[in-house]
Design a protein around this nucleic acid. Structure first.
Lengths: 344, 344
DNA sequence: TTGTACGCGTTATCAC
DNA sequence: GTGATAACGCGTACAA
């Protein structure tokens, strides 16, 4: 590999001058700058960011921690983040945790050893124990899509209460009165918020909560299938289900098919997130859309601002979701139909 | 940040000794090694990989270049790659090109500046001009899922001819005689192979190629929809379509719905790759399964072996795909049905 | 078995 | 304007 010393020798100047030329120092005269740059290009010089990082105390890379890149929700975030990192000349180190705190911990160490300049965190559950270490170590980071109440950390999230309300009100507006909810994990903030907003929205319309129609579960298709089966097998089953994310909704689709319920004729279904799955032909899931890619972008943009020292005010971004009505919601079956089905 | 000097001072030894202890040098006595290590842990020491990389000429990271992390096919590869990189202590720098050669080029430069130890390349079309630069620069790399004939580079691919044959033979075995094909880009090797194998498989069964039933397009849902519409609107439309990947197949699903054809009653459909979309409820696409995650794993494993200097023979892995029969294939409609539909 | 001294490629601080 | 020189944190010949 060619170094600035090689260029210096070839140009008949000192390494310092080469460095200045390459960094566009105002101290040099234009003429020498361009001359040296041409020479560098000719020799195929590539700056060594390891060396640069060593002296400047910055690596020019950020870490992105997610549970699973295969989950389209996180892939969207990754995409937004990578996009802005790229245009700002930063690298992004991909770290997947599989939801395992131990893996998260080891990734965090790897990233510190690599001296990443900042972190984008998504897989953070409420009790995540490593966050205080990060603030102690003074590593800039942003929480993406998951909020941690006990900490005063910068974040980008969606307005979960508003989103859940949109879902429930949509169902009510087309005539549903018997609306169930399958939630995410109990210890995740967004999960709690969606549950609460669901209950509030029902209450506002004078619809009493029905015992067993709303459950905490987990953000997976499996959970959706299992709980969907349970809820839909009840004698007094709901005519509509609001799923706390799209994966759960897909599980409910499976359950509905197993139980012999048609969507949307017999059962209306609303998801959350509007991941790529939701728009697929035949799925066509009505869902609450979060600007997921945008969340990744905003988080990365802020993080890099902080790193570059240009930003001061702490990021507290709450993005408004909106409802995307597709083909999994329709008015509930008439009473006759309902009787038919509940006895069947 | 605490350095080995700090530890040396605290331990009353020289920095060199600390370095040796941390790298488990056989020169040191166990006792001092463990003592120093404990001390390092206490002080919260984290090795500076920038400095280490500078002296060793290796960064401890590899680059992963893909067109789009949002595409489940590439997300699968990324997952496999990240998984093995993680256990072997390497970082992976995520680079997405959006299929733009210019972006690919700039990423390649960034990665060289970061002195990555190796590269995983997926978005490489046949004319990719940067590959020779890489071999010239002596950067280890592996081609994943895309083959470049003119170059003698290590690769992991699926056996596309075999896969395509599986698809076509399945369709023939359940009674289809009128089988169309919508391919990927003409300049991609796997695309060409699938097309050829499709034609060979037909010919072997004595089924003559029909003019206009087989087309090169691109690996996107849009392409599937457009070409699907075109092929399915013909008077002499096929009773089955083989799509060169699952995204195309999804587009065909849309087209079929537009045209009023039911799948699989009126039209059988086979995809390729078995991405996560294919297994979704209501999609349930019959498809040729590639071990995509495994491809990422194998590629990374080999790359890191090369980097560590433990591997010599060039990787030329061709993985066997298998057919996953789901619900988009069925025997063709009877002749009466066919007449009905073509006049409708 | 351990310490000394140097170099990895760059930037920054002095001089000139 | 430009050139020495000294860091940055670590690994490693060489010496002890």
């Amino acid at each position: 590999m060619v170094t600035i010393k090689d260029i210096a020798r070839a140009a008949g100047v000192s390494p310092a001058t080469v460095s200045r030329a390459l960094n566009d120092s105002p101290l040099l005269r234009e003429e020498t700058k361009t001359r040296i740059r041409h020479l560098a290009a000719e020799l195929g010089y590539e700056k060594n960011e390891l060396a640069r990082g060593l002296v400047k105390g910055a690596s020019g890379a950020i870490g992105l921690i997610i549970p699973d890149i295969t989950n389209p929700f996180f892939a969207d975030i990754a995409r937004g983040a990578e996009e802005v990192a790229r245009v700002r000349g930063y690298g992004v180190l991909l770290c997947t945790t599989e939801g395992d705190p131990e893996l998260e911990r080891s990734h965090l160490h790897l990233l510190r050893r690599k001296r990443v300049d900042g972190l984008l965190l998504t897989s953070v559950t409420a009790e995540d124990p490593y966050l205080e270490d990060l603030v102690r170590a003074n590593v800039p980071f942003v929480l993406v899509s998951r909020l941690v109440r006990r900490l005063d950390a910068p974040f980008v999230v969606g307005d979960d209460r508003h989103g859940a309300r949109l879902a429930v009100e949509h169902l009510i507006s087309i005539g549903h009165r018997r609306i169930g909810f399958i939630g995410g994990p109990k210890d995740v903030q967004s999960s709690q918020d969606r549950m609460e907003a669901y209950q509030v929205a029902l209450a506002e319309q004078g619809l009493p909560p029905r015992r067993g129609w709303a459950v905490f579960a987990s953000f997976t298709q499996d959970a959706g299938r299992e709980w969907g089966r349970a809820l839909l097998s009840r004698k007094d089953r709901p005519t509509a289900l609001f799923a706390a994310n799209d994966l759960i909704a897909l599980g409910v689709m499976e359950a509905a098919e197993e139980v012999g319920l048609r969507i949307p004729e017999d059962l209306s279904l609303v998801g959350y997130d509007n991941i790529s799955y939701a728009a697929l032909p035949r799925i066509q899931l009505t869902t609450v859309a979060q600007p997921t890619v945008e969340m990744g972008r905003i988080a990365a943009e802020y993080l890099l601002d902080v790193i570059d020292g240009s930003r001061r005010r702490k990021l507290r971004k709450v993005l408004r979701p909106h409802l995307v009505v597709r083909r999994t919601t329709a008015p509930p079956p008439s009473r006759a139909d309902t009787r038919d089905l509940t006895t069947g």
